[in-house]
Design a protein around this nucleic acid. Structure first.
Lengths: 192, 192, 192, 192
DNA sequence: CATGAATGAGGATTCATTCAT
DNA sequence: GATGAATGAATCCTCATTCAT
């Protein structure tokens, strides 16, 4: 697939992301996605078999992009530094790419996600890198030995909640809030 | 409005909740809501002006019900006990009423929520009780003086993430996970 | 189902019959069927689940109507007279209802027919009355003992071919042709 | 036009014949015809100006092939022998080439045929050879002096009906049925 | 000649909403 | 109040055809 084709697929992704943010899955007809991407309606169907497949593939695309971004971390940092760094990268990424954030949130809480889960294993999206990072800290005795879902609920749950707060406009002084948040989490999970 | 009518409205709410859980906003036509509730399509329009209003009112209904449940707390308990109790009530309620949980999540991440926000103030759903509870702890010097959104992100964010984990099937041993989670949060936010 | 509803279903049938005659299955959109029947597009879907079902039910309807017409025969007639009478009724009916004839022909030679066959038994359309009539003649020793499909091929095959000839305009003096045709068939199948 | 090209045209014809048999005119997109024939979609348009032309030319092709086959008859045979021989050749050809048979049947009962009729005279497809054969018998006083359409209705009508019966699966013992059928026709049309 | 990506008009179907009963 | 048939705009998707390579 050459550059031209990739560009077209990217344009469709971008268009879908933007419009679904504004109008939701339901409020975004294929025709609108097409015209916003400057392609014909039929063209979308060369790249995606259906609207469902388009949305599903866009979700995978977002997850991969997000994971690529947040795990881009200096190996020389201490574990604690990494713990703060990765979390801040995630929050930064979502705040800088709110469309990605909201699309993914919308996807997770819709019936689409169930369809996906049956077919894909976690490594598909790079989700297991998070697990490895936590295991590293537990094995080194740096963080408490609690289950992966518990850590995820805390680490990711707080990050997404924070982004929502900021986006909803409930949270003006985000700088301070962010620092408090990750520090509280660190205090809670660190040993001693 | 007599019992008969309330029953009909309840039946429509229940039907909507169930079907939107299974098929999403988009996948749930009014006709299906009607037949599942054993009423005629037109009947829904006696109680709700439109599909949007039905969904929006159902959301308010769910929020009120949830808040009524979680703040039903013994005044004699210590602050720490209340901190654990309320959180567990919330998780319990969502796990026992998964349809409510997922409907609300779906609503929050959809364009519906934006429409709501413009019209309603937080007290409408009883949301300010949470704020009052946190302020009580801060004023008494029991928990750290961090912003309300930060506390919410942590407390509610972790609860909803936990419920998601359990629902997705990622989290088998939920009992232990729950206890770890609220304990970590407490450790993180308590003074000293 | 009251008269009003029956009328609407009849109007849709009539419209479908007319338009498919003119433009074929493919060339006849539902919207056109609807407007020609003076109903809304959606109304068709109250009576028929899909275009396929509409066409399939119309086929059954035509077959039943045709069989009702042709077997309306005086019991007092001799077998030979009935043999001529029924055949002429069939040809008359098709010539007077060319739309029915062509629709049925089109249906038989399309992939629709295969779908039908799997579900319906011959008696459904009244098709076994023909078989009974031939068996009557064979048992009485009036016509030769040849298989039912053979008799059908001859009796019905010649009738439909004749109607086609007339319709195509290949056959001007139809009166004489018809009489020759059924006489030849009779000569061929009668005993002695 | 060299062999390569002829092969490609043949491949397109073959592909069209197969797919239209399975899915009808409507259910057979050009793209499917192309991929089944191992050519690009655009390639079809080098050989045929449109889908209509492709189908129309395929019809002519089938008619010519069929007529070439059935009139390949020994001159030394008696008229009666030829009468039986040609009919059996026709039935054999259709049974051995059911796709041709059903395509042609479908074409005849569709609006395509009307388009054709306006442009082509009967001799185009070799249809007048049948007429000549019947006239030969009439002039020699061997068969009854009935009109051409009458004879065609009988001779061809019975043949196609028989093929349909066999294809539909209504007719198991085809050998006996065939012999009965052509014998009955002969008895009906022969003089005395 | 051959390709197949791109087009966009057109078609089947759905569904929120209305309204006569 | 309650019904559910009727509406028709809106949506997803298809597919004949074109054209740059």
């Amino acid at each position: 697939m050459n550059v031209q084709l990739l560009n077209k697929k990217e344009a469709i992704f971008e268009s879908t992301l933007t419009l679904i943010n504004e109008n939701g899955f339901h409020g975004t007809p294929m025709s609108q996605i097409a015209s916003h991407a400057n392609v014909a309606t039929g063209t979308i169907y060369h790249y995606f078999a259906s609207k469902d497949e388009l949305i599903t593939e866009l979700f995978a695309h977002c997850r991969v992009k997000t994971n690529e971004h947040i795990f881009n971390v200096e190996e020389s940092l201490s574990y604690k530094e990494k713990f703060f760094y990765i979390w801040n990268r995630l929050v930064d990424y979502y705040l800088a790419n709110k469309k990605v954030f909201w699309f993914v949130e919308q996807f997770y809480s819709s019936p689409y996600y169930e369809l996906i889960q049956q077919k894909k294993n976690p490594s598909y999206y790079g989700a297991d890198r998070m697990r490895m990072f936590f295991e590293e800290g537990i094995n080194a005795g740096i963080i408490r030995n609690v289950s992966f879902p518990t850590l995820i609920s805390l680490y990711i749950g707080a990050a997404t909640s924070h982004v929502k707060m900021v986006t909803y406009g409930f949270c003006k002084a985000q700088k301070q809030g962010r620092e408090d948040l990750i520090e509280i989490i660190w205090n809670g999970v660190k040993n001693q």
